[in-house]
Simulated scan of single mutants.
Amino acid sequence: MLVWATLLATAAACGLERPAPRAISASPAQERTPTPGPALESPRAPADTPGRSDEPRGSDMGPGHGSFEETVTLADGRRVAMHYKRGQGLFEQHHIPHAGGWTRPRLIYRTKTDPCQGIKLQADSGTVTAIADFGLYCADGEPPTESVAAVGVGDLREWDHHLTRNFDGWERVTFTGGGRATFVNRSLKWHTTLVWTPSGGFSDPVNKRVG
Score class of each variant (00 low, 15 high):
Pro143Ala: 10
His65Glu: 13
Thr182Val: 15
Val80Ser: 06
Gly118Asp: 09
Ile119Gln: 03
Leu7Ile: 13
Ser67Asp: 15
Arg157Ile: 02
Val153Ile: 10
His98Asp: 15
Pro205His: 10
Gly87Pro: 00
Ala29Phe: 11
Arg79His: 01
Ala11Gln: 10
Leu121Pro: 04
Gly118His: 04
Trp159Ala: 02
Ala45His: 09
Gly177Tyr: 00
Val173Met: 07
Thr111Asp: 06
Ser59Phe: 01
Pro28Gly: 04
Gln93Leu: 01
Glu41Gln: 15
Asp160Cys: 00
Trp190Ile: 09
Ser67Pro: 00
Val72Arg: 03
Arg52Gly: 07
Val3Phe: 12
Pro143Ile: 12
Phe134Pro: 09
Ala23Asn: 00
Met61Ile: 03
Lys208Met: 03
Ala29Leu: 14
Lys120Ile: 14
Thr145Ala: 13
Gly154Trp: 01
Asp155Ser: 11
Lys112Asp: 14
Val128Asp: 05
Leu16Trp: 14
Gly200Glu: 13
Asp140Gly: 11
Asn166Ser: 12
Thr193Leu: 06
Gly201Val: 07
Gly126Gln: 02
Glu146Gln: 15
Thr193Arg: 06
Val184Asn: 02
Ala26His: 10
Pro97Ile: 11
Thr33Cys: 05
Pro144Leu: 07
Gly58Val: 07
His94Arg: 11
Met1Ser: 14
Cys116Asp: 03
Pro56Glu: 11
Ser53Tyr: 04
Pro143Arg: 08
Val195Thr: 15
His65Phe: 14
Ile108Asp: 04
Leu40Tyr: 04
Gly62Met: 06
Gln88Trp: 03
Phe68His: 02
Pro36Glu: 05
Thr176Gln: 10
Leu194Cys: 06
Val184Ser: 00
Leu74Asp: 03
Glu70Lys: 13
Leu16Gln: 08
Arg79Met: 12
Ala99Ser: 15
Lys208Gly: 00
Phe167Ala: 06
Glu142Lys: 13
Arg52Tyr: 04
Glu31Ala: 11
Leu156Arg: 14
Val151Leu: 02
Phe68Gln: 06
Glu92Asp: 01
Glu17Phe: 07
Tyr137Ile: 00
Glu146Ile: 07
Ala149Pro: 06
Gly126Cys: 05
Gly15Arg: 04
Val206Leu: 11
Thr35Lys: 11
Ser67Tyr: 14
Arg209Gly: 11
Gln88His: 11
Asp140Leu: 12
Thr192Asn: 08
Leu2Gln: 13
Trp4Asn: 01
Gly135Tyr: 07
Phe91Ile: 05
Val3Ala: 14
Gly77Arg: 05
Ala12Lys: 09
Arg44Leu: 13
Ala132Gln: 10
Val195His: 05
Thr129Met: 04
Thr182Met: 01
Pro50Cys: 10
Asp124Ala: 09
Trp196Thr: 02
Gly152Pro: 02
Val148Trp: 01
Arg180Trp: 00
Phe134Asn: 09
Glu69Gln: 15
Thr73Arg: 14
Ala130Leu: 07
Trp170Val: 06
Arg86Glu: 14
Pro144Ile: 05
Gly118Ser: 13
